[in-house]
Design a protein around this nucleic acid. Structure first.
Lengths: 219, 219
DNA sequence: GTCTATAGCGGGATAGAC
DNA sequence: GTCTATCCCGCTATAGAC
């Protein structure tokens, strides 16, 4: 649907930016209009209300996201490589939709909120299950240490990317920048996260049964 | 300052819960009153306005937090052990202040928002710097792989704890629970995060010297 | 399609009785 | 200290001119 109204797009872009920065409740219609350089009332010409504008913002990107997931994660991929691609895929959203990671993260954080979108829940659940399966597959072929709980491990992976983007303003300050983190640093962090994760997943290098006195989780 | 008015406390508790769940903007004075089982107007007897109630909510906990940091992180601690304590300390906030991790996380995510509290920035910056220093110290004595960027690594560590709590409702669903994650699972996840992190930090196994003996819980 | 004006409502905050 | 009533403002959303 090439619904190419300029103002419609301007509104979507502005809303995307503001919702990502401030969240849904803190963002006013007037602010969206101002950010878009457009009369605020036009919002109601193109969208039924604020909430459905929010949904439109999310849905506009979900297609691309799902498509990318499908093409970049063909079925037969080795688990470790698939995991790496998922991490990089999350960061890659930044190009072309820089606000999206933060917005998605917010969506998960405000999961209970009235404006939350069911599609996102399902998408998150699907991705989560997929990562869990990849980890189990990796454990089966001894490429991932088998004392890791797949579900918890999946959370560890996602966290590293998600938090980096939600906490963007704080993170950027901590890294010594004003405003947003420059793209080169995003890439460097992504490389780091991949390396960090792969190191954590790697099985202990000695005999498999030699020492598992590692850690007090008695099961 | 044993300012022990019951209603004041009720208001603080209610506000803490709601701000953590919904964020500042989405939380109304009336909702706080209802949650506290108290007349909403009383808010203005005990606090100047909504924003300063929010600050009071944060400040009430910061003392405990800082004190715990100081006592549980004496200066001479080995880097890896100090790092473990930081991770566990974050999770331990849950007891006695279950909403706090999520609230702090929100504070960092909404850093730009008008209501953000400077103290929190400094606290976060201090903690960040401290973790970075610990990592550098660990690298110097060859207990942490030296190809890791200390700043990025610090983010990886914090992320795992922070995101688990911000995304609480989503995470809980993904783990198969309704509502909140049960405390036992929080503990198990914390154990996981510690193990995951230590595995990622461990230097490549070429040097035998790196095999230091750690006892996460000496039983 | 875009704009102005405004309705209508809900939010934060205050006055003052008790 | 607590409660009722209410003010005022800003926000969402609509009506209707152009």
């Amino acid at each position: 649907m090439p619904d190419e109204s300029q103002t419609r797009l301007a509104l979507l872009d502005a809303a995307e930016a503001l919702f990502a920065r401030q969240g849904f409740a803190a963002t006013t219609i007037k602010a969206i209009g101002a950010e878009a350089g457009v009369n605020p009332a036009l919002l109601y010409y193109y969208f039924p209300d604020k909430e459905r504008l929010y949904h439109a913002v999310l849905e506009r990107r979900l297609g691309t996201f799902a498509r990318r997931m499908a093409t970049e994660l063909p079925a037969g991929l080795p688990p470790l490589e698939a995991i790496e691609r998922i991490l990089r895929g999350y960061a890659a959203m930044m190009h072309g939709a820089p606000q999206m990671p933060r917005l998605l993260a917010r969506e998960l954080a405000d999961h209970e909120a009235a404006h939350a979108l069911p599609v996102i829940r399902e998408l998150a659940a699907g991705l989560f299950r997929r990562i869990c399966d990849l980890i189990r597959a990796g454990q089966r072929i001894r490429q991932i240490r088998d004392d890791l709980d797949p579900r918890f491990t999946a959370i560890s992976l996602v966290s590293q990317m998600a938090w980096f983007f939600v906490a963007q303003p704080a993170v950027s300050r901590l890294l010594g920048y004003e405003g947003t983190v420059p793209p080169t640093q995003v890439e460097r962090y992504t490389d780091h996260a991949v390396a960090f994760t792969l190191a954590a997943l790697a099985p202990a290098r000695s005999r498999p049964a030699a020492r598992h006195t590692r850690h007090p989780t008695r099961s």
